[in-house]
C-alpha cells in the first residue's frame, strides 16, 4: 500500500458525501430535522451521541493512520521490534475515558427514556388529544375516542398539541412510525403501547410501518395531517357529521353497488347501510383523502386501477379485485365514493 491511498480514500468519501448532502434530492422525512418537540428531544440525544462518537472516531482514526504509515516495515529491514507486553497506564486510560464518556451519555438517555414514557392523563383535556391506532395488513385504522371518530390511512392532528397514540394490532406485529415527527413503537396483537407524538408546523408527514408484516409491508404507508387546532376541530366536526348520503341518481346507484359488494368489509358513517364492515378501512369522507389505500394519489385513474386490481398495487392485500363489475356499476360506485365528504 502506498502512502497516499488511505488518505485519498477518506477524501473520496467526504467528497461523495458533500455531493450527496447538497445534491439534487431532498429527503421527504428526516430524522435529523424533526418537526415536533418529541422528535427534537430524541434528536438532542442523537446529536449528543454523535458528538461523543465523532470525538472517539477522531482519536482512534488519528492513532490508526499514524500507526499505519509510521510503522511500515521497510524493504530489507529485518530488525525485531521490541516485544512490549502492555502498559498499565495506557490500558487504564482507555478503560477510564470510555466509562466517563458513557456516563455522560447514559444520564440524559435515562432521563429522556423516563420523561418520554409518561402516559396520557386519564381525563380528556384541551391540551392534548388521544388516538387509538390499529395496524392491519396493510392499512392503519385511527380512532379518536374523545371525538367518537373512526377513520383510516389519514391521521389528523392539531399542531402544537401532544397526541397520545395507543398503538395496537389486529393481526401481526406492525410498528407505527412517523420519521419526520418522532420515534416508533410496535403494534403487537394483544397489547397496547402508548407513544406521544406532536407537530410544530402544519403539514403532511409520511407515516410508515416499520416491522415486517407481510407482502406489502413496504406499502403500508399512512399520512399524518397536522393542522391548526381550529382547522382540526373543523375537520373533526365534519367527520362527526359526514356527508355520506348520495345526492345524484348515479351516486344512489353507486351506493347500491357499494351495498352489494363492499359493505361487508368497509363501513361508511352518516348513511343508512345494513352493516358496517370493520375488516377494511372506514371510507367516510373518502373524497377528502389525499391517498387511496394510503399509497396512490386520490384521482380517477388511480381509483380505477385500485378497484380493478388491488393485488397489483398492494401485493397480498385482502381486498379482491372488482374488474368483474360492469362499466356502469363501476363508474357509479366511483361517483358515490367521490361524493363522500
Amino acid at each position: 500500500m502506498s502512502r497516499g491511498k488511505p488518505i485519498g480514500r477518506l477524501f473520496l468519501f467526504f467528497a461523495m458525501f458533500a455531493l450527496l448532502l447538497t445534491g439534487c434530492e431532498k429527503p421527504l422525512s428526516n430524522v435529523l430535522d424533526p418537526q415536533g418537540k418529541i422528535g427534537k428531544e430524541q434528536l438532542e440525544l442523537i446529536n449528543l451521541s454523535v458528538y461523543i462518537m465523532i470525538f472517539v472516531c477522531v482519536i482512534v482514526f488519528a492513532i490508526f493512520f499514524y500507526v499505519l504509515l509510521r510503522f511500515r516495515r521497510k524493504p530489507g529491514d529485518n530488525a525485531i521490534p521490541k516485544q512490549v507486553e502492555g502498559s498499565l497506564m495506557l490500558e487504564t486510560l482507555w478503560i477510564v475515558i470510555p466509562i466517563i464518556l458513557l456516563v455522560i451519555l447514559a444520564i440524559p438517555t435515562v432521563m429522556t427514556t423516563f420523561s418520554q414514557a409518561k402516559e396520557a392523563p386519564k381525563t380528556a383535556s384541551e391540551d392534548f388529544i388521544r388516538v387509538k391506532a390499529t395496524g392491519h395488513q396493510f392499512w392503519w385504522e385511527f380512532e379518536y375516542p374523545d371525538y367518537k371518530i373512526r377513520t383510516s390511512q389519514e391521521l389528523h392532528i392539531p399542531v402544537g398539541k401532544k397526541v397520545y397514540v395507543e398503538v395496537t394490532s389486529d393481526d401481526v406485529v406492525h410498528a407505527f412510525w412517523v420519521p419526520g415527527l418522532a420515534g416508533k413503537v410496535d403494534a403487537s396483537p394483544g397489547r397496547i403501547n402508548r407513544i406521544p407524538i406532536d407537530a410544530d408546523k402544519p403539514g403532511i408527514y409520511k407515516g410508515r410501518c416499520a416491522e415486517l408484516c407481510g407482502a406489502s409491508h413496504a406499502l403500508m404507508n399512512f399520512q399524518v395531517v397536522a393542522e391548526k387546532p381550529s382547522e382540526f376541530e373543523k375537520w373533526a366536526k365534519k367527520r362527526q357529521k359526514p356527508k355520506s348520503e348520495p345526492q345524484t341518481v348515479e351516486a344512489k346507484d353507486g351506493k347500491k353497488v357499494f351495498a352489494q359488494n363492499c359493505m361487508s368489509c368497509h363501513a361508511i358513517d352518516g348513511t343508512k347501510l345494513k352493516m358496517k364492515g370493520d375488516k377494511a378501512p372506514n371510507l367516510t369522507g373518502f373524497a377528502k383523502r389525499n391517498k387511496i389505500g394510503g399509497l396512490l394519489d386520490n384521482n380517477e385513474k388511480n381509483l380505477d386501477r385500485w378497484l380493478k386490481n388491488p393485488e397489483k398495487v398492494k401485493p397480498g392485500t385482502y381486498m379482491p379485485g372488482f374488474s368483474h363489475l360492469n362499466k356502469k356499476d363501476l363508474s357509479s360506485l366511483k361517483t358515490y365514493l367521490k361524493s363522500l365528504k
Binding site: 430524522v31 422528535g39 428531544e41 430524541q42 440525544l45 442523537i46 451521541s49 454523535v50 462518537m53 472517539v56 472516531c57 458513557l102 451519555l105 438517555t109 429522556t112 427514556t113 418520554q116 410498528a175 420519521p179 418522532a182 420515534g183 416508533k184 413503537v185 407513544i195 416499520a210 416491522e211
Partner: peptide, 19 residues
Amino acid sequence: GVTGIMLALPPADFQYHDS
C-alpha cells in the same frame, strides 16, 4: 461500534429501530 452505542439509547433507538 459507535453506531451500536447510538442504537443503545432507547429514545434515539425509537427513531433508528428497524430502519
